[in-house]
Write a protein that binds this DNA or RNA. Structure first.
Lengths: 341, 341
DNA sequence: CTGAAAGCGCTTACAG
DNA sequence: CTGAAAGCGCTTACAG
């Protein structure tokens, strides 16, 4: 009788060799059969899959990642979860990657490049299969980290023509420009721009706003109200009141995000300010509730789900080792003209 | 001259042995020093940490998980991300676990027990350090999976006295009861309950509503409007209109969530229905924007961040192998009486 | 088409 | 307090 081995560290787990034994093949063959690698006899594949199912085998992702130097994880780094914008993108990414066996990891940067860099370094240690990042604004160290890792990466929300950089988004500048153009077309002359957070994309919209007003000779820097505070309905209401106090002659407000605009609209309602009679109000993103406001809010509908799906598809293609024909996908935007302007 | 080894699979990664060599100790000692295990000479710890820093060493989580049978991941399973409720909880969990070196993984079940079971089986394969689940309503298989895994687990949002089950939440039943009591105290007689999604917690609030109205002899099942559709502002407006059509004599509505209530309130505004004159409106959760509505919405403030923090702390304690004195933490709730009732 | 050997980068016993 | 050996559960070359 054999004495029990002394050095074992049993985990009670069903392993690949258990499956291999049950199917009467070698672990290598079992591994290949389970991963659907071609070049395994059809009969063996059947046997292995059946054995795996019967034993309730679940591959160990840690062992797999260690052996193959590649996990099935795809970290997605977004600034916030409290903005429905990013939640919609995440849902779409998750929906697209899931059926291909990739696991979406959510990382929140809070608009802080240092936090992003740290997240990146920690996620990269997990040997991710791919990476999804928001925008292009990050530390040089973060950029190096990604480049050196060789992990396929797609950027969300903004566009660039830089070669070797993959991105899916729309022109924030043009969207800001077109919404402003709409206000001008409605005959507005004193159009304010009210923004919070002041992240890169907000500032690109601000540039679009400025460009448009300059084209019409209507630009006045005193009509810009920029707050670095986080965006919220409450802040929108407060900034709207500030604006009314300091610039009582404004006839339109372009809020850089719908939560601000909704707050502004509700404040107008409370103060019995006629919208759009006295003042037109527009927002950005077409978030939930904007079409239900009183009056319904004019805004720009941004392709949130489409960006999630398209960026995930581009990443899938990169992870397969393919070279996409286009490295930049412009998904456009849609002006939603409603009763508030 | 030695021929290069043929079987190497170099990953270009800085490993623990690189650090050990640089610090002139064995890999085991380096490992212990880095993990802060006590029983290593202070001088060595210094040397190892310095070497690690100089080399830019980042431990490989896959190797660590494989060797120790335990990862640093803590999956949190929530029904949705589109409800701010869960986003707030997640933020708080993440904030609490992060400094202890644990990584929060977000899993979304879409209120589907089968999806939850599948997520659980996939996450458990990663040998998580701990687990955070929403509520108690899951498949028997899911329950078994968790129990057999031995992974420490805390439940969120609901309470139970069952022994060996850890939970952090508040009484959904009592909150529903107390809000209804407030409406009764305001002299309302025909109080409707309008709900969507119909998840377990919503139905517990419904029970609280029923109990309260029965106590006052005011219960009328025809005043309940229950829709299995996902909760949203839009749906709230629609259900409110349905209710006005079928039960024109209602004098108060208890919406089971603030998004529904906000939609109802905006619809009332649009239809020029006097709130609270003709009809009182109340919501649940005190989500962003509820205090800014016109009129501001009466609701129940639920301890979202507190639940996130407390559940993460309870889990930290379990992961340390401690046995918490209380296995159930009741965080209570707060009635926010505003102008809509 | 199939398999024996080695290795991925750590940690767990066990010894001293 | 420190270390040599073995092992965690897979996959990657290499051979046949």
């Amino acid at each position: 009788m054999k004495t029990p081995e002394r050095r074992r560290r049993p985990s009670g787990r069903v392993t690949l060799s258990d499956v291999a034994k049950a199917a009467e093949v070698s672990p290598i063959t079992a591994s290949r059969a389970l991963r659907g690698e071609r070049g395994v006899a059809a009969g063996l594949v059947e046997r292995v899959k059946l054995a795996a199912k019967n034993l309730g085998y679940v591959p160990d992702p840690a062992a797999r990642a260690l052996a193959s130097q590649r996990s099935a994880q795809v970290p997605v780094l977004v600034p916030l979860l409290s903005n429905a914008l990013f939640v919609d993108v995440l849902e779409a990414v998750h929906r697209t990657l899931q059926p291909h066996g990739f696991q979406t990891l959510i990382g929140v940067t809070h608009y802080d490049p240092d936090q992003e860099e740290q997240l990146l370094s920690s996620y990269l240690a997990h040997r991710p299969a791919g990476l999804l990042l928001t925008g292009f604004d990050r530390t040089e160290a973060a950029r190096q980290l990604v480049a050196k890792s060789g992990v396929p990466c797609v950027h969300l929300m903004e566009l660039t023509q830089a070669s070797g950089v993959y991105c899916v988004g729309f022109s924030q500048h043009d969207a800001g420009h077109d919404l402003t153009e709409h206000l001008v077309a409605r005959g507005r002359k004193r159009i304010a721009f009210v923004a919070a957070q002041l992240d890169p994309r907000t500032m690109q919209r601000a540039e679009g706003y400025r460009a448009c007003l300059r084209e019409h000779g209507l630009y006045d820097p005193r009509l810009e109200l920029l707050s670095p505070q986080p965006s919220s309905m409450r802040l929108g209401g407060e900034l709207f009141e500030d604006l009314l106090r300091t610039r009582p002659d404004v006839d339109a407000v372009f809020f850089c995000n719908d939560d601000l605009a909704q707050g502004g609209l509700l404040t107008a309602l409370r103060l019995r300010i006629d919208v759009p009679g006295q003042i037109a109000i527009a927002g950005f993103n077409d978030l939930s509730g904007s079409d239900l406001m009183v009056p319904p809010l004019t805004t720009v509908r941004t392709p949130r789900s489409a960006m999630g799906v398209a960026s995930a598809q581009m990443l899938l293609s990169l992870m397969r080792g393919e070279t996409p024909t286009h490295n930049s996908t412009d998904l456009g935007f849609e002006l939603m003209v409603r009763a508030s302007t």
